[in-house]
């Protein structure tokens, strides 16, 4: 299972990098979101995916899934959401002010070259 997940993570990273290298700002943001997804899955995968109960204390159960990476991923999800939201609004404002979403046209003004 872990190897299958590693391959899925690899595919997510491939798509993310390809999108990040594109010209369109909105595609770059989609790429970063995918990159986040890939990292979260990787975090969870690396701690082992042996089946165990959800990490909620219950009677008669001794095998739990590892709770620590889950806590780490939860934190990471929230942070990447915050950054994505900020990034999206930034892109939205950039559209409004610059009238373009093409990264190759955003090279600073002549005086800042």
């Amino acid at each position: 299972m872990e190897f299958l997940m590693s391959i899925i993570v690899g595919i997510l990273f491939t798509c993310a990098v390809y999108l990040i290298l594109s010209k369109s700002l909105i595609r770059i943001i989609i790429g970063t979101v995918l990159l986040g997804h890939g990292s979260h899955l990787l975090l969870l995968t690396m701690s082992g995916l042996k089946s165990g109960s959800a990490p909620v204390l219950m009677d008669n159960i001794s095998e739990y899934a590892d709770p620590l990476p889950q806590a780490l991923v939860l934190t990471a999800i929230v942070i990447s959401f915050g950054v994505t939201a900020f990034f999206l609004v930034l892109a939205y404002r950039a559209y409004q002010e610059l009238g373009t979403d093409n990264m190759e046209q955003m090279r600073g003004t002549e005086s800042h070259d």
């Binding site: 872990e2 590693s6 391959i7 993570v9 690899g10 595919i11 997510l12 990273f13 491939t14 798509c15 993310a16 990098v17 390809y18 290298l21 890939g38 990787l42 995968t45 690396m46």
Partner: peptide, 13 residues
């Protein structure tokens, strides 16, 4: 480049 990055991450994993 994207495929190479994906491959690297997979191999590392």
């Amino acid at each position: 480049l994207a495929v190479l990055v994906g491959l690297t991450v997979t191999l590392l994993a």
